[in-house]
Design a protein around this nucleic acid. Structure first.
Lengths: 214, 214
DNA sequence: ACTCATTGTGTACGATGTCCACATTCGGCG
DNA sequence: CGCCGAATGTGGACATCGTACACAATGAGT
């Protein structure tokens, strides 16, 4: 990589046209490789072929950029979860289907964490002040955030009478805690570098525990 | 805070005497307030009343310093967990005692995460290459790491026949996943800012789930 | 007392986030 | 068509950070 960094179309138009998105896209690529810390303002502008300060026309802060990237990463997560559910046979209505949909939420979550650890870390990176419950920017193609996907799956369990109604309240936090914690252990913790097969098994064990203990 | 930053004894001895530990201590204070990102090499040396480069006699890198601070934070976590167990009535041997000891592991873990979020984040901050399973530096006063404390508690459950022996293998990862995940949700996630009482309840719910589902 | 490895100091360099003043462009409005 | 103000991008500057290199002070062992 001596010269010609990557794609630098050397824009001729002075105006970039879609800088905000270009920066987010560049940030996503940086995050994919190096996690939140790698989302460097100057690097993103370089990639977009633009002066560092141009970023300040679209983001007040490096933090604002990072937050946008984080939301985009969250949307990726949502899409991965949707994709996991989409692989299921379309046998709707059955009790087994509700259960399968619930498990797919967790499996998709864990798959994303392992396939895109940098994005996963970035999605959950919170710069200590933002109350980033922010909605639609974090949603997938179906317009649901990961949290909402989980909630819907749990509602399905209740409808299918796999989960007693009085256990439903707060159940998302139990399920989320377990799956998110496993993701952390697999990515950063002592389970890092586990063979994908074993990691998948571990995921299924955790989801088993959730189904039993929820 | 115009002058006299904090404690700068303006050492007269040229040699500091215990710089390595002083830097770790300073790093811990920085981490306590601002998490891993706040562990800034120059700030730590400043606090120790020493030139920035002096740090390089004791740590190869800023990362090495951060790692040392991280291990120290992990040791704090271990001590908090031990302290939580120490509050239990000394009724040894009973089935109820084994169960209480197990729950105290989780409760202590969660308490630390909430009382010292900066240290907690730092303890689990992994700079993407280190295989930081490193042992003794992360241990508490009893010489056990948090992970080992959990393992011991689980062994206790088996002895008390509260956990069937065939479920024991891998159980630490199930329990750890759930508790660690809740900690993450409480610190950074959507459960941030929950009233301590409610947070405690959430913790108990998660531990209930673990006991049921493990 | 001399030597030498250890430990701190000083200066310097490149990178980063961000501020300020200025340049270029676009979208109206006459 | 021509002008003008609001958007958008550029250039230069500064403080801070991590870190490299050369040098100084110190203490231990001969």
């Amino acid at each position: 990589m001596t010269a010609a960094e990557s794609k630098k179309p050397k824009r001729d138009t002075y105006r970039h046209g879609d800088l905000r998105n270009a920066l987010i896209e560049a940030g996503l690529e940086l995050a994919r490789q190096g996690g939140p810390a790698a989302v460097v303002l100057r690097a993103a502008t370089r990639q977009a072929g633009v002066a560092p300060n141009a970023a300040y026309r679209h983001f007040t802060d490096r933090n604002a950029l990072l937050h946008a990237v984080s939301q985009a990463a969250m949307a990726h997560l949502a899409r991965t979860m949707e994709a996991e559910q989409a692989t299921l046979p379309p046998t709707s209505g059955t009790t087994a289907a509700a259960r399968a949909r619930f498990r797919a939420v967790g499996t998709g979550y864990l798959r994303f964490a392992q396939e895109e650890p940098g994005l996963f870390r970035t999605a959950f990176h919170v710069p200590d002040d933002m109350t980033h419950a922010a909605a639609d920017t974090a949603a997938g193609t179906a317009g649901k955030t990961p949290f909402e996907l989980l909630g819907a799956a749990l509602d399905g369990l209740v409808e299918a009478e796999l989960l007693p109604e009085d256990r439903r309240p707060g159940a998302e936090f139990l399920a989320w805690s377990a799956v998110h914690g496993l993701a952390a252990l697999l990515i950063d913790g002592p389970l890092r570098g586990l063979h994908p097969t074993q990691a998948h098994d571990a995921g299924q064990h955790v989801i088993d525990m959730i189904e039993r203990g929820i």
